[in-house]
């Protein structure tokens, strides 16, 4: 499991180098933002992976309370840890882009606030896991936090959205056709794919480690 995950991650990293080449050489320079716009090819896929990771934590939590399958809990824990990594990429690339373009590192815009709280929820989730000793209790508690967190996200978005929003509006998933030059769109989609591969690889490694840990704990308890 760990070996397979490592292989997928390595593949993802090589492909990521390809994304860098595409982003720097293939895509045109954006007319108004200049080179700063290039960060888009990392920021958006990282945000996508963080959101996906967190949604899966919540969904697996719900399924766990229903099915009580240890694999779901292990997957949720792995997804949360990898999600934190992607959330960190998102939260660092964002301000780096925002400083030259918006003139400020941070603003309390709806999406920024939302993702920041997503990050806090991840951290709370992982802190809780670390603070509960009993495995079944840990699984139940974290499943509850996962579900509640998933339902909190729309509320945070809605309440912050009632303020004015600064974040660039959706340009790919919007009702009319994507308003990007084809080179940019292709690079973004490739980058999304590469980040998803990285997510899968990292979660597989982490899942394999969790499995080994559980087995070792089980053996230690039996002995």
């Amino acid at each position: 499991m760990v070996r397979r995950g490592t292989a997928i991650t390595a593949l993802g990293l090589v492909a990521l180098a390809g994304v860098y080449v595409l982003a720097l050489g293939y895509t045109p320079i954006e007319a108004r933002q200049g080179a700063a716009q290039k960060i888009f090819y990392l920021h958006v896929p990282a945000a996508w992976c963080a959101l996906m990771a967190f949604s899966l934590v919540g969904i697996c939590g719900g399924l766990y309370l229903w099915l009580k399958d240890a694999r779901l809990d292990r997957f949720a824990a792995s997804s949360a840890e990898v999600g934190v990594a992607f959330a960190v990429i998102m939260l660092t690339t964002g301000p780096i882009w925002a400083k030259p373009i918006w003139g400020t590192w941070w603003t309390w815009d709806a999406r920024l606030t939302l993702t920041l709280f997503l990050f806090f929820l991840f951290i709370g989730y992982l802190a809780l896991r670390a603070a509960v000793h009993d495995p079944s209790e840990r699984a139940r508690f974290s499943a509850v936090v996962g579900i509640l967190g998933l339902l909190l996200v729309p509320f945070i978005h809605l309440s912050v959205y009632l303020f004015r929003t600064l974040h660039p509006q959706p340009i790919v998933l919007k009702p009319s056709a994507p308003s990007l030059p084809p080179e940019m769109l292709q690079t973004l989609l490739i980058s999304l794919l590469v980040f998803t591969v990285l997510y899968i690889g990292l979660v597989t490694v982490r899942y394999g480690l969790a499995l080994a840990e559980d087995e070792w704990e089980g053996r230690a308890d039996a002995a």
């Binding site: 929820l121 945070i156 309440s159």
Partner: peptide, 26 residues
Amino acid sequence: MAVRTRFAELMLPVLLLPFMVPPLIG
């Protein structure tokens, strides 16, 4: 949940504060 964890007094605010944000803003 927090009473069953280590550092219960710290765990509750870390978990609960994000959930206070929407009601607080409103």
